[in-house]
Nucleic acid binder design. Structure first.
Length: 747
DNA sequence: ACATGTTCCCTTTTT
DNA sequence: GGGAACATGT
């Protein structure tokens, strides 16, 4: 299939900045890959081209598709294709000294960050009920996303006295990171930007030619950025600086900006044309993915946002089936319905890989996974508890990390007593205190355990640990990576521990370690001379994305966020309820609500042929039963594109749940397969659902009740029934509480 | 030092 | 409902 005129224009444009506004499914990736291939064909050396994406998956796909297009004509291995984070890690690995790191620097993930910050807050003697590691890190992260260092923190306009605490914590946190020869995700970008800023003003122009960072700013003649709407200010600065001598082409869709919470700023794309003189703007509006019914629904949702660049997608794939909107009793029913419907579709010949189930939060995945598996289908959870987050995997990687960088306390303390070797809490605390007193690393204090005040027995155990690491370190230089990892698992006693403990869980962990070893071998196959540093960098950055090792054809399940960029024949979007999607936390913030709307837009536009939106009348959310008020997004859908399916109106309270659970779902699913329309509940999505019956006054969400202790409050949900019924209520000061229903009375 | 019990938060979304 | 951090008991 050849490119359409707009796509061709975007591929061909040369000589100035280019902004491609690419709606969902309009062939954005095609444009990028064709553009890169065309550049190569014109004779641009591959190492002068940089392509940046947001996820590793996207990077991988892009590289593969470029490879395909080039068909061996060019040395595509020399192309720089990667995520912001992996590109920056790569630059940093080559020039770490400028920001005080060694070339063995470790990359801290969220839990490493937290344990470090906990230490910082303790050192600073900050009241720990007021400042949680997570909260403080949130501020710091925000600062880093904007390219701000501790001294520039006032630009965030945090109020005193919080600002002072944050500033001190930020400063100290960076000191500790540096002492640990480590950096966090935010630093990867910010450090490189810092280096690039310095490189921009070389003091001596002759030396400048030799400075690797200066060369970095002139290296690339073509830079392409995907998903530009998701860039935050530092990332944008990084691009500007790295592309100083390059033709810059950014591709994105303001309607799909869903990472505002991570510091992404839609302004980057909205103002691109203003900031880059003579920028050409190309709009891609022909959608090759979805039927018109799906597009009309998507458009109806996104149209309500303000401040859009604006575009209208069209497709010549026909009207297609109506979008299905289904209300069910509980989240269990919802899951079951999806499982059965998917099952039926697969029996009709649909490829399971072309089926996807989306949810707003990870927590919702359990029930869905459960029911899908129960119908005998295999499913793949994309993201979620990532492989590299597993304890045994993290431990093994921590061992490897300590082998070449023992200054990272977080890693040393992670493995010092795992598997258990009798170095308990007391001992560890003593060692940590000694390290703190000497201003040295934890590892240094292990070298002289007596100095830390340890008794003989404890000191001997510590020595044993140190010797073990040192022996492994000696082996490190002689062994290939895969064998080294095997040695670590063996010598550390990890394998033995898992075998001894004969539980199912240990078995699974053992298998995970085997998978990890397979993973190293894969790495070595791809990069035969790959180093330990490179491997650890790779796994730290690949983080969330689970290895796609299992080749079984399975249904895909994921959050809406991780669905971006993907497409499926058949899509189910679950939890279409107020407080779920849109999420409860955005209800009173119009800005975040717009992002939520874009998120819904992303969800709907993933579907090619069949889109099903489901909601549950009652849903358990951390133990609490919440009443499902239909999502406002459902209300936005044009009625003539939608086919509504509701179970029989069920105005029973939660107490009747078990009776309800017996049959309706099966009946429902059959009704679909027989294509019988259910029109019994025409207006479901827009009615409030009365809740409890038979227990005196009916209770419903949004009802105002009076309490003796807290005053008037709004009912958010309930759990239990009869005298044990509990209500979740929001007080006048917005605080949420759970109280016994008997404590309140209607106003 | 480890096993067991208890409380507390939690949950938006990811590199 | 559930996992992690803390507390207490052996």
């Amino acid at each position: 299939m050849s490119l359409n005129p707009a796509q061709q224009t975007a591929v061909d444009h040369r000589g100035g900045p280019l902004l491609v506004l690419a709606g969902a499914g309009t062939g954005k990736t095609r444009v990028i890959t064709h553009r890169v291939a065309a550049l190569l064909d014109e004779g641009v050396p591959p190492w002068r081209i940089l392509a940046v994406t947001f996820t590793n998956k996207a990077a991988k796909e892009m590289r593969e598709r470029i490879d395909e297009l080039c068909d061996g004509r060019h040395e595509t291995r020399e192309l720089w294709v990667g995520t912001f984070h992996s590109i920056c890690a790569r630059v940093l690995r080559r020039n770490p000294e400028g920001v005080g790191l060694s070339s063995h620097y470790a990359i801290y993930d969220t839990s490493d960050q937290k344990s470090l910050m906990k230490q910082v807050l303790t050192d600073l003697g900050v009241p720990d009920r007021l400042y949680t590691p997570k909260g403080v890190l949130g501020h710091i992260d925000r600062a880093k996303n904007q390219g701000l260092r501790p001294s520039e923190l006032d630009q965030l306009q945090i109020l005193e006295p919080v600002a002072t605490v944050i500033r001190n914590a930020y400063t100290k946190y960076q000191e500790k990171l540096q002492a640990a020869d480590a950096c966090d995700f935010g630093d990867l970008i910010l450090h490189v930007v810092t280096l690039l800023r310095k490189a921009m003003k070389p003091s001596d122009s002759q030396l400048a030619d030799l400075d690797p960072m200066v060369r970095m700013t002139t290296r690339f003649t073509h830079v392409v950025v995907d998903e530009f709407q998701d860039t935050n200010p530092v990332q944008a600065e990084f691009i500007d600086r790295i592309a100083r001598n390059a033709e810059l082409c950014v591709v994105g869709d303001d309607d799909q900006s869903i990472y505002g919470w991570r510091g992404a700023d839609v302004d980057q794309i909205l103002r691109f044309a203003d900031r880059h003189d003579g920028a050409k703007v190309v709009r891609l509006e022909q959608n090759y993915r979805s039927t018109m019914n799906i597009l009309k629904c998507s458009d109806a949702v996104i149209r309500k946002n303000s401040g859009r660049l604006g575009k209208t997608l069209w497709s010549d794939l026909g009207e297609g089936d109506p979008v299905r909107m289904v209300r069910l009793g509980t989240e269990r029913d919802e899951a079951r319905l999806i499982a059965q419907d998917a099952h039926a579709a697969i029996e009709d010949g649909t490829d399971p890989e072309e089926i996807a189930v989306f949810y707003r939060t990870h927590a919702m995945s359990r029930v869905l996974e459960d029911e899908v598996r129960r119908t005998g289908l295999s499913c793949r959870i994309v993201g979620g508890v990532a492989f590299y987050e597993r304890q045994e995997v993290k431990d093994t990687l921590a061992y490897l990390s300590v082998l070449r960088n023992n200054s990272s306390d977080a890693h040393v303390s992670r493995i010092i007593n795992r598997p258990g070797r009798g170095i308990g809490n007391t001992t560890q605390t003593r060692l940590a205190d000694a390290a703190a007193k000497n201003g040295s690393s934890l590892w240094d204090s292990l070298l002289d355990p007596e100095a830390a005040g340890l008794k003989k027995a404890a000191a001997r155990k510590v020595r044993g640990f140190v010797t073990m690491i040192q022996n492994l370190r000696d082996e490190m230089h002689q062994l290939p990576l895969d064998e080294l990892m095997a040695r670590v698992i063996e010598v550390s006693g990890y394998r033995e521990m898992l075998i001894t403990d004969d539980s199912e869980e240990s078995q699974a962990r053992l298998e995970n370690l085997q998978e990890l070893q397979g993973n190293v071998m894969e790495f070595l196959q791809e990069r035969p001379d790959g180093t330990l540093d490179e491997y650890l960098e790779l796994v730290s950055l690949v983080g969330g994305e689970r290895s796609e090792g299992d080749a079984t054809r399975a249904i895909n399940m994921m959050t809406v966020h991780s669905a971006k960029g993907l497409e499926f024949e058949r899509v189910y979007v679950t939890g279409m309820e107020e407080r779920v999607f849109p999420h409860a936390r955005v209800l009173d913030d119009p800005v975040q609500m717009e992002e939520e709307r874009r998120l819904a837009y992303v969800a709907l536009t993933r579907a090619k042929r069949m889109l099903t939106l489901t909601m549950a009348a009652r849903r358990r959310i951390y133990g609490q039963t919440q009443v499902g008020v239909p999502s406002r997004f459902l209300g936005d859908l044009p009625r003539d594109c939608v086919h509504r399916v509701g179970d029989e109106p069920d105005y029973g309270g939660y107490g009747r749940r078990s009776a309800h659970r017996e049959q309706p779902i099966r009946r429902q699913a059959e009704s679909w397969q027989n294509d019988i329309e259910y029109d019994t509940a025409p207006d479901i999505p827009f009615d409030d659902i009365p809740a409890d019956e038979g227990e005196g006054v009916p209770i419903y969400v949004g009802m105002i009740v009076r309490t003796r202790t807290f005053g008037d409050a709004e009912v958010l949900g309930w759990s239990g029934s009869g005298p044990k019924m509990k209500l979740q209520i929001r007080l006048g000061n917005r605080e949420v509480k759970t109280v016994l229903a008997s404590f309140v009375e209607p106003v």
